[in-house]
């Protein structure tokens, strides 16, 4: 870490750091990989040699055949994608606007409005399920992605506003005032000056709000349980519940719900890292 230290000690320390990091990385990824690679093994190999990688004698795609015949995973992925991206877009846009209004302006209601929004952090939105169900039925939105998008946007707005407010408070006042002197409107200042500066926070918030939406079981189960609107997690959960004795099919269904998330994540994490470093280097 520091160049002033004697070389020997520094390399011993950094060796320890790398070993610790590698060990932690292994513990984070191994359970996932274990499920993924066992999903293409024969039943005998899954139980006989659970740790060995699939080889010529043990490869078996039977689990995937079962899943393909019994469930419509491509459709589930499309549904999850629509719901996740739709609510992410609405949450970020409206969240950024509200956080700016609450941190930038001191007005009579601002403290009360902040408290009002904080309520949403404290109560699991699930507690209001019965009323949400009635509302969605009254609006004729049962079994539509729109219902899920609106519920998830309401669910994620409080945490988005809270985190963005913390970061917006660190943006220098001089910068905003300079833009105002130049005649820029508040929306220009927000989208042109403030948002680029807090991009790391926005990337973090995006991850935060996407994960629970993509992974939620509860609201798809209650509001969008039809075959046409089912999400990946609901589809996988119901499938695993039905095929609990068929380890091949179970591991295949789990893998199907893991692997695309991983691919999305690898694409997305590059964006995230770019956002993080761009914001930090300035």
């Amino acid at each position: 870490m520091s160049a002033a230290k004697p070389r020997k000690r520094a390399s011993g320390w950094s060796l320890f750091i790398y070993v610790a990091l590698a060990a932690y990385a292994a513990s984070a990824i191994f359970p996932v990989l274990l499920v993924v690679y066992n999903s293409i093994k024969s039943k005998k190999a899954i139980f006989g040699q659970p740790l060995s990688l699939p080889g010529p004698g043990t490869i078996d795609f039977r689990g995937y055949e079962t899943v393909w015949e019994a469930a419509n995973f491509p459709r589930y992925f499309l549904n999850s994608g629509i719901v996740t991206l739709g609510s992410l877009g609405l949450t970020l846009l409206f969240g950024v606007m509200a956080a700016y209004a609450l941190t930038e302006f001191r007005f009579r209601m601002s403290r009360w409005l902040s408290l009002y929004i904080t309520i949403g952090l404290m109560v699991p939105i699930r507690l209001g399920t019965v009323a949400i169900l009635k509302l969605v039925m009254a609006l004729g939105l049962m079994n539509t992605p729109t219902a899920l998008i609106l519920v998830y946007t309401a669910m994620n707005l409080p945490v988005t506003v809270l985190i963005l407010s913390v970061f917006m408070n660190t943006v220098s006042q001089d910068l905003k005032n300079a833009a105002r002197v130049d005649g820029a409107g508040e929306y220009r200042i927000l989208f042109g000056h403030v948002i680029p500066l807090i991009r790391p926070a926005i990337a973090t918030v995006a991850v935060f709000t996407m994960i629970p939406v993509w992974n939620d079981l509860w609201f798809p189960l209650i509001l969008a349980n039809s075959e046409a609107t089912k999400t990946v997690i609901l589809g996988a959960q119901q499938f695993v519940g039905q095929y609990f004795k068929d380890w091949n099919a179970m591991l295949a269904a789990l893998t199907l719900s893991i692997v695309p998330t991983l691919i999305l994540y690898l694409l997305f994490s590059r964006q995230l890292i770019a956002g993080l470093t761009r914001g930090a280097v300035k």
Partner: peptide, 21 residues
């Protein structure tokens, strides 16, 4: 300006979170 910044978030939040709670 403040009202237009806050309105969309407050509307969705009130209808789908506060009202059910």
């Amino acid at each position: 300006i403040i009202a237009s910044l806050l309105a969309p978030a407050l509307a969705i939040y009130t209808v789908f979170m506060i009202y059910p709670l």
